[in-house]
Write a protein that binds this DNA or RNA. Structure first.
Lengths: 146, 146
DNA sequence: CGGTATTAGTTTGTACACTAATTATTATGA
DNA sequence: TCATAATAATTAGTGTACAAACTAATACCG
């Protein structure tokens, strides 16, 4: 295996760049989301529910690419914040219907300012961000066929 | 604010794509790192130390873009695994010198197979991955001037 | 020189991400 | 019909990432 190029520099690793980029961008959201009492993962859950509700836990977990084990306490905290309600489904008592409260629905209007503020903070063109986003979904898909 | 474009679709968010891409790629490492008894963050620490040792905690934290609060228990566990040693610096007793053990140094040889295996799993060209990596560092830098 | 500010690393607390196990409900097939 | 397999969501356990607080050592400046 002497012909394996030495690719062990930390900054050579795409996984390292992905991890740092993810964390760095998410850290920009923190001060913006804090006044709404939301963490970034909670914000993503809200985005999913603003898009469509009511939803099953399993359905949300799939859309958010999370394990239900992660989502369960996350939803619990959102419910405790009064943004989300969870009710046992009547047709299938194993399932929960997760929906927004009125408060949760109204929050969408305020949340509309968030993406432009982040884009502003980054100072990158929409083109560039769009290209990045596409290549990210490219690698996500590649990782699922691996 | 009626002229703010509605950018609240979950999949429109670069941050979501970043989070999922990061997690997805990192999940590919898990079965590969498991036989070495390493988690992905621990692997990154090892990469940093293989690059240069001994190191201060603060120095490692900066290179890994981690908080010392995160790195401290992480190093503790690596020390417990026998891969890393931590000694109080003699010139400045506040500081630790973090170095590899012989076992830790030897692990580098086995680790050389890891990046090619991941690249193989992803089935993406080196060109494409390199372009991605560059744009990721681009956004990392942008987030730090924000 | 010595009191105070700063620094290095750790601990505590909270949230999250994954794996494994658990409980209750529903689907399946003999 | 009924025992068993599968499913939905939760809980428990481990590791990690960040923020705040803490302890001990060093730097600084009057």
């Amino acid at each position: 295996m002497t012909d394996i190029p030495d690719l062990l520099g930390l900054e050579d690793q795409v996984c390292f760049a992905l991890a740092i980029a993810s964390r760095s961008v998410i850290s920009l959201y923190r001060p913006i989301l804090e006044p709404y009492g939301l963490t970034h993962p909670q914000y993503l859950v809200m985005l999913a529910l603003w898009g469509r509700e009511p939803r099953r836990v399993k359905d949300l977990a799939e859309e958010l690419r999370l394990e239900p084990a992660t989502l369960s306490p996350l939803l619990k905290r959102l419910e405790a914040s009064g943004l989300v309600a969870r009710h046992r489904n009547e047709q299938d008592e194993r399932a929960l219907d997760v929906s927004l409260t009125d408060t949760g629905r109204r929050l969408r209007d305020e949340a509309r300012t968030i993406p432009p503020r982040i884009i502003d903070k980054l100072g990158m063109s929409l083109d560039e961000l769009e290209r990045l986003r596409h290549s990210l979904w490219r690698v996500i898909e590649a990782s699922h066929t691996a």
